[in-house]
């Protein structure tokens, strides 16, 4: 069961990384959004998959009565989802503001802070 999902996760990574290597901000943003899902699924799957038994202890028991889904990766991922979302929002706004200021969404044209010409290091003391 994990093996098939693993292959899907591989696809998630491949798509995310292909998009990230683009020069267009929009594609990079899409790549980041997908990369977040890819990593979350990676953590989720490495904690093993189990169908339809949420990690909730029944009312009558003190400890889970049957085998339940692994709660630990779920706790890790829950915060990761929220944080990756807030970062996506941040990057989105950053990209948008950069687009507004520079009038381009091509990373190769966003090099206003890079030195131009042949830059010699400072010599002397």
């Amino acid at each position: 069961m994990e093996a098939t999902v693993s292959v899907l996760i591989g696809l998630f990574f491949a798509v995310a990384i292909y998009l990230l290597m683009s020069r267009q901000l929009v594609r990079i943003l899409l790549g980041i959004a997908i990369l977040g899902n890819a990593v979350n699924l990676l953590i989720f799957t490495s904690g093993r998959l189990l169908r339809e038994v949420p990690p909730i202890i029944p009312e009558a028991l003190q400890v889970p009565g049957e085998t339940i889904a692994n709660p630990l990766p779920q706790a890790l991922i829950l915060t990761a989802i929220v944080i990756s979302f807030s970062f996506l929002a941040f990057l989105l706004v950053l990209a948008f503001r950069a687009y507004q200021e520079l009038g381009t969404d091509d990373t190769n044209e966003m090099r206003v802070a890079e030195p131009t010409g042949d830059v010699r290091p400072p010599q002397g003391y």
């Binding site: 999902v5 699924l41 339809e52 949420p54 990690p55 779920q74 991922i77 989802i81």
Partner: peptide, 11 residues
């Protein structure tokens, strides 16, 4: 949906 199928309703 994948999270739902594999027992993670919170997620």
């Amino acid at each position: 949906l994948i999270f739902m199928l594999f027992g993670a309703p919170d997620l």
